[in-house]
Simulated assay, not measured.
Amino acid sequence: MASAEVENMSGVLKVYRDGTIFRVEDPRMFVKASLQGEGDVASKDIVLNEKLGLWVRLYLPSSHLQQQTEKRRLPLIVYFHGGGFCLASPALPDFHNFTLKLAASVGAIVVSVAYRLAPEHRLPAAYDDGITALQWVSSHAVHGGDYEHDPWLDSHADFSQVYLLGDSAGANIAHHAVAECGGVEAWSPMRVRGAIFVQPYFGAEKRTRSESECPPDAFFTLPLSDACWRVSLPVGSNRDHPFSNPWSDGAPKLEEVPLPPLLVAIGGRDMLRDRGLDYCESLKQCGKSLEVMVLEEEEHAFYALKPHCQSSERLMERISRFISSSPLESAIHNNDVA
Rank of each mutant, 00 (worst) to 15 (best):
A2W: 14
A4M: 10
E7D: 14
S10I: 14
G11H: 03
V12C: 03
V12T: 08
L13E: 06
V15I: 12
V15S: 05
Y16E: 00
D18Y: 05
V31D: 12
K32A: 10
E38D: 03
L52Y: 07
G53R: 00
W55M: 13
W55P: 08
S63Y: 14
Q67Y: 13
Q68C: 15
R72E: 15
R73T: 14
P75G: 11
L76C: 09
I77L: 13
H81M: 10
G83S: 10
G83A: 09
G84C: 04
C86F: 06
L87E: 08
A88Q: 11
S89I: 03
P93W: 01
D94R: 13
T99Q: 04
A103L: 09
S105P: 00
A108S: 14
V111I: 12
V113Y: 03
Y115Q: 01
P119S: 03
P119E: 00
E120C: 05
E120Q: 11
R122W: 00
A126S: 07
A126F: 02
D128G: 04
D129R: 00
D129S: 04
T132R: 13
A133N: 03
L134A: 02
L134T: 05
Q135E: 14
V137Y: 03
S138D: 02
S139H: 06
V142P: 07
G144K: 00
Y147H: 13
D150W: 00
L153A: 04
A157G: 07
S160T: 14
Y163E: 06
Y163W: 05
L165E: 06
S168T: 06
A174V: 05
A177G: 10
G182K: 08
E185R: 12
S188H: 12
P189V: 04
R191Q: 12
G194Y: 01
Q199L: 08
Q199W: 08
G203W: 02
A204H: 09
E205S: 14
K206Y: 13
K206M: 15
S210F: 06
S212A: 15
S212Y: 08
P216M: 02
A218R: 02
A218Q: 04
A218S: 09
L222N: 00
P223Q: 11
A227S: 13
C228V: 05
W229M: 01
V231Y: 07
R239L: 10
D240R: 09
P242A: 06
P246A: 08
S248F: 05
G250L: 06
A251D: 02
K253D: 11
K253E: 11
E256P: 05
L259Y: 15
L263T: 03
V264T: 09
I266D: 01
M271C: 14
C280M: 08
L283D: 13
Q285V: 13
C286H: 09
G287N: 11
E296G: 08
H300D: 01
Y303A: 10
Y303M: 12
A304T: 12
H308V: 09
C309N: 09
C309D: 04
Q310G: 04
S312M: 02
E313F: 12
L315S: 00
M316C: 05
E317Y: 13
S320E: 04
S320H: 01
R321N: 12
S325Y: 06
S325T: 10
P327G: 10
E329M: 10
S330G: 11
A331W: 11
N334A: 14
